[in-house]
Amino acid sequence: IHNPLPEGCSLLELEHITQCVVKSHIETSQYSTEELKRMAWSTYSVEETRMYQSKSAEVMWQECAIHITNAIQYVVEFAKRISGFMDLCQNDQIILLKAGCMDVLLIRMCRAYNPINNTFLFNGRFAPAHFFKALGCDDLVAAVFDLAKSLSRIQMSEEEMALFTAAVLLSPDRPWLTDVQQIQKLQEKVYVALQRCLQKGGASEEKLTKMVSKLPVMRSICMLHIDKLEFFRLVHPETAYTFPPLYREVFGS
């Protein structure tokens, strides 16, 4: 039943990888599952929602850019704690983070999504899609909510999410990487660890297929975000210049 072990990889090593990745995920999650559960029914009032909707696009973009930047810092910490990541050359580390951090954020995001009332955690409370109207990107917001809905249907455990986000981050097909083979080996080990974790949890074979099948949607959301940012930059260059430097670094051309 078990998948063959990657060449030169022992069961002990897989166990070590799993423990390391899961620990890193838990240590670098902005909110614990208990905190999220506690907040799940704390929503915005109609007046507060209207107030957010009537903000200018510049103010709302700035606010969201700050939230995304904070979340990226946690993803960088997550990456640093994955065994083998810091052994890669710094050029490759940066390429993997720039290309993969939004994917990781999109997967992690479904922890902060309540599928029952279709709301997302934003600034300490849960907000529906129309809350983000001021951004002027209804299609991007709708795509993010749709993804969260479909990801939450998969019902990933924290262990599965930890390993899946690590595997996505270690994608060897990102352009300009120097040590593709090394990254490929690392990713293969993480995927086998994930398969074993799924089998242990009694999950069906389909669960991994379902998780992986969301990757193209994530990629299109990442591209849509970049498109929207580029348009915003054209219309409001001064505001875009005041976005957090890390946000500009990661999403700049």
Binding site: T28, Q73, V76, M86, I94, K98, L246, E249, V250
Partner: peptide, 20 residues
């Protein structure tokens, strides 16, 4: 290197800038 100054710094920092 200049282009990814902050990522470089974050990767080199042994302590996290985020209060984890």
């Amino acid at each position: 290197k200049e282009k990814h100054k902050i990522l470089h710094q974050l990767l080199q920092n042994s302590t996290s800038p985020v209060d984890l």
